[in-house]
Amino acid sequence: MLSSIKSRIALLGLAAAMAFNVHAQNVTGAGSSFVYPVMTKWSADFRNSTQVKVNYQSIGSGGGIAQIKAATVDFGASDAPLKPADLAKFGLGQFPTVIGGVVPVVNVPGIGAGKLRFTGPVLANIFLGKIKTWNDPAIAALNPGVTLPATKITVVHRSDGSGTTFNFVNYLSKVSPEWKSGVGEGTAVKWPVGIGGKGNEGVAAYVKQIKGGIGYVELSYALQNKMSYAGMQNAAGKWVLPNAESFAAAAASADWANAKDFYLVMTNAPGDASWPITASVFIIMYKQPKNAASSKSAKEFFRWVFKNGDAQARKLDYVPLPPALVAQIEAYWAAEFKF
């Protein structure tokens, strides 16, 4: 009896020791809430196949950057890339991980999804408060055959600082000199007009409730809430709708090869089929981390994601990185990450 207990304890100890050897270090990450849904899917699948647990806290891009700088997590995730100079100052490296897009959503009675379309400057003028009603000639000229009501336009923006806002206003700055000089860009800006909703869900709720409302959300929120998103004219002058193909086209046409530390905001991407407000989530890690073992696990996690995570990403309306970009990231890891 006693010996059987002893042997059991020994067995348990052995199992624990083996588990300890087999298990790589658990990984912690924090940041972008945009990437949170797919990140949790990936970490569940990764855990099933490798037993390594990835804890991801969805605290917002700014929080993610602050946490990785303080080295309290193994990786930070941000919707806006850090400048190479900032990265160098802290000894950090970064790479894109998945692609998504921001879409204008409207609530104009009688107009369904994809029926309305804007050019960048017209969208900027709406958000500047210069175009005030839906039947404004500037909107009517872009939408022949659509009956536009005289309803007042109510602009809805994010009230909290957000990577979604960063990408949206970055695009407006690229297409409208007046926006660039008057409002500028950032995760939060001084909005000339409109009301603020908290989170993608807050903006979606306001736009759905307010007749004549226009806002911007991630595509998945627009699809889940069955909202009327609008088409856009891209940098090549072509009309495009927001979907996986147009997001992928933007990612493929972006000039990643010449972007140092992948510092590239994909908005207003060239290419005939590119969606103009496409965005990527960036992962930020230390090049020489204090805890090399868990950083190595984190790197293995993203290697696994690039290999096996595409289906999950597509299911949740994200777009996986193009293969050429993944190869470039692998090369970057080999050259820069010393663990």
Partner: peptide, 8 residues
Amino acid sequence: ANEFGEAV
């Protein structure tokens, strides 16, 4: 509440 999370 809105801005603390992203106040860098």
